[in-house]
Design a protein around this nucleic acid. Sequence first.
DNA 1: GATGCTTACGATACCCGTAAAGATA
DNA 2: TATCTTTACGGGTATCGTAAGCATC
Lengths: 309, 309
Amino acid sequence: MNFQQLRIFREAVRRNFNLTEVAGALFTSQSGVSKHMKDLEAELGVELFVRRGKRLVGLTGPGREMVPYVDRMLLDAQNLRTIATEYGGREDGALTIATTHTQARYALPRVVAAFRAACPRVHLGLYEAAPEQIAELLHEGRADIGIATEGLGDRESLAVFPFYEWHHAVIVPAGHPLERVQPLTLEAVAAYPLVTYREGFTGRERIDAAFAAAGLAPDFVLSAMDADVIRTYVELGLGVGILASMAAETTTGAGLRVLSGDNLFGRNTTWIAVSRDTYLRGYAYRFIELCDPSLDEARIRRESSSQSD
Amino acid sequence: MNFQQLRIFREAVRRNFNLTEVAGALFTSQSGVSKHMKDLEAELGVELFVRRGKRLVGLTGPGREMVPYVDRMLLDAQNLRTIATEYGGREDGALTIATTHTQARYALPRVVAAFRAACPRVHLGLYEAAPEQIAELLHEGRADIGIATEGLGDRESLAVFPFYEWHHAVIVPAGHPLERVQPLTLEAVAAYPLVTYREGFTGRERIDAAFAAAGLAPDFVLSAMDADVIRTYVELGLGVGILASMAAETTTGAGLRVLSGDNLFGRNTTWIAVSRDTYLRGYAYRFIELCDPSLDEARIRRESSSQSD
DNA sequence: GATGCTTACGATACCCGTAAAGATA
DNA sequence: TATCTTTACGGGTATCGTAAGCATC
């Protein structure tokens, strides 16, 4: 058993068992790839792949069981390299943040600016993704830090920390009747066609829950992934917009009015997540501390260590 | 980076950095061992060992950080082999139970007998150890199942399940004044020199806690690891014995009398533990089911999976 | 016929063990 | 001096890539 075999196995799983493609991805020959898999099966004494004739079409029982272990081994190999780099004393390196549009656009600019000043030699990458993908990216070690409002709590393999709380705001075109409703109520809002976030994004659950609790079934005419699209269509008069307060604050003149929705929809919490299985460079903790100074390195390390004493 | 290097690194840590000894343990040459460690350090670009002149005397910062990851990688390699064997269809294999004297002597014989009948081809090994060692053996993958009353709850890396509950009993030589005390009280017991388990064994904590709660400071004249030693010295008249009820039940004539201690000391729970990081053969689950049928394979797997999806 | 897996084979690189040298206690 | 690590070197083995053979779609 060697690491090349494990890399090939993992890549084969990811690429639907097309060994030719795997060879390309790993910059090696497909004959070598094929032999490696035969060798691994021979050493373990079990077939890992289901074959139709000569084609590989799936995993056998043992093959399926091995996937998580192989993934973790390769992740751990990466962790060793990361530890070495961290202690190499060099200040450079890469940090990948997986986050949603809303966070990247409204919450993170301040943090990113501060981080670039603090750690100028670190290559900072922002990876915009849907909430469900963020957990996956962290789990696979393809991102170091995840920041999102939903979808991070489910996995045991992630450690999550509260970042900040926020609420939703209502926006309308200038002169809209809702401007004169004081105080604003859910019933009043639900009387108009609504423009807001798609399911699974930026607290949409909270919005649905609030209407449902009030026995209302509003008409959502547009479900977007980001506030810019929502604003655009509210400006067009498609309906009344509901968006994150951080996004509403930067809503410039442009004929739009922001109505407070503090009391209409519940408060949302945006979370910071890291994988328990990924070793983080020191500057990753710096980044998190810039998000919230109470999230210091010692606390993150403590609360995210489930493995190894 | 390859597995031989990782094996050598782990063994070096375990054997106080004596590479000659490591070579012996891994059945290879010192020169190869030495070169492997140099190669690994070169590849990672960091010194792993603290050297005094040419001698290795400890781990550097990065070396220390890498230990748990290396341990886990090698454990995972073992897990792959175990999975393969499990699916090889063969019924044979090994199962190592780490447990204390008390469990091995009084609780497990019934289970072991049933298991041998159910899985005759499995080589069953009982490893008697102190409670603190049991957690370590499980964590290192040197035992599959741990059974003990204390010391298993601390580690995040272990999943624990209740096995059974029991209490302590008091034993005295026939004709002892305590025989006539009805009902038996802590005060009455504490008036005599006591013979019981050592700290950290077989519910000793519970005994101490019970006396402390009653404001008593009894005189422990002997602290043993097992019931046989306790019985022996109670017979000699050294003092009054306190031992596990399972052990008391088998106390034969021999001039000893068992007094119920049900209400004197709290109830103890004996636990079954498995490592979250170790893949278990099917028959390991059979063993646990024989301990308690409600601890079926699905439940154990579910509640011990914190890693991997 | 295009795609994809397997096998054969030669060049290369890596790993191992013996032996000798250097350093430490 | 005895113990331990490092370096040097030769033999063996494993890995890799090219190329050809052969199934599958």
